[in-house]
Design a protein around this nucleic acid. Structure first.
Lengths: 250, 250
DNA sequence: CGACAATTTGATCTGTCTCAACTATGGTGG
DNA sequence: CCACCATAGTTGAGACAGATCAAATTGTCG
């Protein structure tokens, strides 16, 4: 009860975008959590359902997605430490589904406990609010990415974003990182077909920007990749302490 | 002091998605507001700026947008009663710009006053939070719209959304409504070119779904338009009292 | 080894873009 | 009051990014 690894993970995540006092951190450490394991490709919660708890991702990767007539659209990707369904704290019904892209472990936190926390600790209420605003900011960047960029720029941008966010969460270091998405899933995230993702990754590799081998991606030329993607990490609203150095790791 | 039209407008907007008590409404009525007029096509706030106040839209239409190498991408459209920049209550820097699509009047509300309100009235804090979550929900639907739907479906979906939202705000009644966007702006909102918007609107008209004449759009066959667009208004998270009847106005 | 999922390749097709010209439409100043 | 100009809408022709379809290849795991 309390003080566990899950609580530290949550605190770490919150502190990538908000500052907390020791009292705030202690309050988070007292949050009751219920662990659960979810298999790969299983939905954690489905569109239309109503939820009574949020889920903190402890390990693995999940995505949020919608099914429309044109196929599946992935809306966001989340890593260990993220709370992908913070939104249903104040919206009764899910307007999208959350799915495990790998086998994952999650910690469920009751809405009641989170709301009580928000009432007693305004800084945490603001941090939760801020968290959902950052999610919104990332969603807006995805709108622009899908709406106005070419395939190669879209893919490069998604890679840059995941790279930067995983660094902030301590899930990547150096120029290689593991992003467990299939090419079909990369397509669903960027609004492209699987075949075109395949060809686009080959182009990125031939151009000497990125080397992708299965789920392991190696940044070959960060500066040129960033320029191609038109990637400006400001929209992630990371605190300075969580950012990559400007010049990047290369 | 207070009790003005702007305050009623804000209350009406909040009540399309959250329930308030009389005490909450009174607190909103005491909010100090500073009116301002903005010309068409002027930015109200620009990407990168830091803001110390939110703006409540009193009349006219504004959009949020980003400029990327591929052009401009409109991220959302807002009508009288909306607070398009609720987000910068907890994020220092704008990650996008807000622009007046028509001549508009706005009421600025200081962040300090809003934060004080949120502290004293938890229901309002939740309503503000809920507001930004609904904005996020709409953004996610736009991702799916742009990423996975054909041009004609995208345009139809945007029209359905604006129609439904304007009804909820009391800005439209019957089957005709005025949406003051040029075809170029419709293109920027849907990730399409101006020329293709033009042809798509003609197709919608020839198919007997929608008749657009300048900025006045007339729903000719709501059911078929909704079906084509794959439009399900659940993502707007409107309270029952603000919804269109299921069958729609036709 | 067999089976199944993921990746890769080739060929063809098609939505949508781009470019360019032309036509309303409306506002402004001479 | 009209000539002018800017803005928005319309049309046509051609180009191209990316989709689709189908098959082959590779990888993975029981």
């Amino acid at each position: 009860m309390g003080m566990g690894v899950p609580h530290s993970l949550l605190i770490r995540q919150i502190e990538t975008i908000s500052s907390l006092s020791e009292g705030d951190r202690d309050a988070v450490r007292r949050l009751p959590m219920r662990m659960r394991r979810v298999d790969q490709n299983r939905d954690i919660i489905k569109e239309g359902q109503r939820a009574i708890e949020c889920c903190l991702l402890l390990s693995g990767v999940v995505c949020r997605y919608k099914i429309v007539v044109g196929g599946r659209q992935i809306l966001s990707v989340h890593f260990a430490g993220d709370v992908p369904d913070m939104q249903n704290l104040y919206l009764e019904r899910m307007d999208h589904s959350v799915s495990a892209m790998t086998a994952v472990t999650v910690a469920h936190i009751a809405h009641g406990d989170l709301r009580a926390l928000a009432l007693g600790y305004p800084a945490l209420a603001a941090a939760f609010h801020r968290q959902s605003l950052v999610d919104g900011s990332i969603e807006r960047e995805w709108i622009a990415n899908i709406g106005r960029r070419l395939a190669i720029e879209r893919v490069a941008h998604l890679i840059c974003e995941c790279y930067e966010r995983m660094h902030a969460l301590g899930l990547a270091s150096g120029e290689s990182f593991q992003l467990p998405l299939t090419q079909a899933e990369l397509g669903d995230a960027t609004g492209l077909s699987t075949v075109h993702i395949n060809r686009t990754l080959q182009t990125l590799r031939n151009d000497g920007l990125l080397h992708s081998d299965g789920q392991v991606h190696t940044i070959v030329d960060w500066k040129r990749l960033r320029d191609l993607a038109d990637f400006n990490p400001a929209y992630l609203h990371l605190l300075p302490s969580a950012k990559l150095a400007d010049a990047g790791p290369i």
